[in-house]
Design a protein around this nucleic acid. Sequence first.
DNA 1: CCCCATCCGTACGCAGGCGCACAGTCACGG
DNA 2: CCGTGACTGTGCGCCTGCGTACGGATGGGG
Lengths: 229, 229
Amino acid sequence: MQAASNPSNRLLAALPRKDYARLVPTLAPVTLKFGATLYEPQQPIPHVYFPIDCLVSLLVPTDGRQLLEVGMVGHEGMVGASIALGMPSSSLHALVQGGGSALRMSAGRFRSELAGSPPLQLMVNRYLHALMAQISQTVACNHFHVVEARLARWLLMTRDRMRSLEFRMTHQFLAQMLGVRRVGVTEAAGALQGRNLIEYARGHIRILDALGLEAACCGCYTAPSAVPA
Amino acid sequence: MQAASNPSNRLLAALPRKDYARLVPTLAPVTLKFGATLYEPQQPIPHVYFPIDCLVSLLVPTDGRQLLEVGMVGHEGMVGASIALGMPSSSLHALVQGGGSALRMSAGRFRSELAGSPPLQLMVNRYLHALMAQISQTVACNHFHVVEARLARWLLMTRDRMRSLEFRMTHQFLAQMLGVRRVGVTEAAGALQGRNLIEYARGHIRILDALGLEAACCGCYTAPSAVPA
DNA sequence: CCCCATCCGTACGCAGGCGCACAGTCACGG
DNA sequence: CCGTGACTGTGCGCCTGCGTACGGATGGGG
C-alpha cells in the first residue's frame, strides 16, 4: 500500500522496476484541463493516459444527447485500456472531471510496449477486470439507491482518485454524472451539508467528514486497493 | 453474417479453420439446465462455456441479497471471459436463464489454448470489449427507461441469443432480471400482449411481432453483429 | 380426479424523482 | 463599483414504480 500522497500512477508503480524503467521514456507528462474530452465513442483513440492526480469520467451516450457516467478513472488505473483489447476505439466518452496531471503515451506505442512486457499486460488486464466490476456495480447502484447515497459514493470515489478532499464541481455537472436533475443534487447535497459531512459553495465541494460520508453512502462504495484486483 | 439457425458458437466459428480445429478436441458438449449457477462472485471459475443455444445471465449482487442482471451471453460470446484477463474468478454471478447446449472447456486449458492462439485472443478480446459496451449500455437503460421498454429490449436480446421466439420465463424471474417488482412486469407484459407483440401464459413467453417489439423498445437494443465488435 | 403450489391479475396508498419555473446570491470583469 | 452571468434554493403538480395484499386461474402430482 502506497502513501496516498505518492504522486504517481499506481498501475505503473506496480510494475517491476525493469519494465517501469523501459516505459518511462515513452511517457510524456501532460496537464489535463477540467472539461476536456479525451475520447468520443467510435472515434480512434490517439493516446492512452495514466492519471496522477486528475479524474477522468467514462460516460455512455443516451438517446437524448445526455451522457451518463458509468465509471471513473484516477491514479489507480488508465484511460484507454480498450486499446489493450486490440480495439482502436472505445465505446465510451472520456471526459476530464478533475483537472490535474497525467502521463500520456501514443496508442501505437502502448500497443507495442504491451506486446513486449508481460507484467504490463498483467496490470492492464487486472485493471480491465476491476473496471468491469466498477461498471457492473454502477448498474446496481444507479438503479437501487437514492440520490443522496449515490452522491456520497461519488464524492468518496472522487476523493480517492483526486487524492484531495476538495474539488471543483457544480451541482449541474454532478447532476449530469448521476443522471438526475440539478435540483436533485441540490437537495441531496443540502442534506449532506446539513449533517456537516460536506460543505460547498459556488462550484467547490469539500469533504468534511469522510467517515460520516461512508455511513451515508450505499454499500456500493469500496476504496480502490493498492493494486486493482 | 451466418444463418441464425447455424447451431454453433459464433465466437468459435469466427476463428480460422486451423485454430478452430485445434480447439475442437478440448471442447466438451454439455447441456445447461435452466436455473443452474455456473459461477458465483469471488469463487474460482472451473470452466469456460461457449453457448450454442442457451442463455446465460451475468448478475451483480446487491446489498439485499438481490441480484440484478448486467449482461447476457448467448451464442455470440462466452462465459468466463475474465479468465482471459488472467483473473481466476469473475465478479459476477453467471446463471443459466435459458436451458440449452454449450461447449465447455476447463479454465486451465482455456488459458493455455489462448496463449497458443492469437486469433483466439483476438476474438476473446473483441468479445470482452463488446461485453463492456453491453454492460455500460445497461447502466443507461436501467436508469432512464420505463419497464415496458426495458422488457421489450430484454425479450429481443433473449431471442437473439436463444435463436428462438419462445422461451420459458415467469414474470417473477423477469422481475428479478430487470430489478423491478413482479407486478411491474405483469403490467408491462400485459401492455405488450394487448398490442399483440407478445403472448404468454404460465411461464412461457412467445414473441409474435419482433418488429413491433423493436418499436416498443428503447434505443438501447441493437442486434449483435456476426462478429462481436 | 382433485388438490395445491405456482403463476398471473388487480387494487391502493406512498415515495422518490421529474419537468418546469422563478427568485436570490455570489464572483468576476469592464 | 456595478452589472451580468453563473450557481444555488424553493415550490408545485405529475408520473412511475414500490410495498403490500388478496383473489382467480391453471396444470401437474398424488
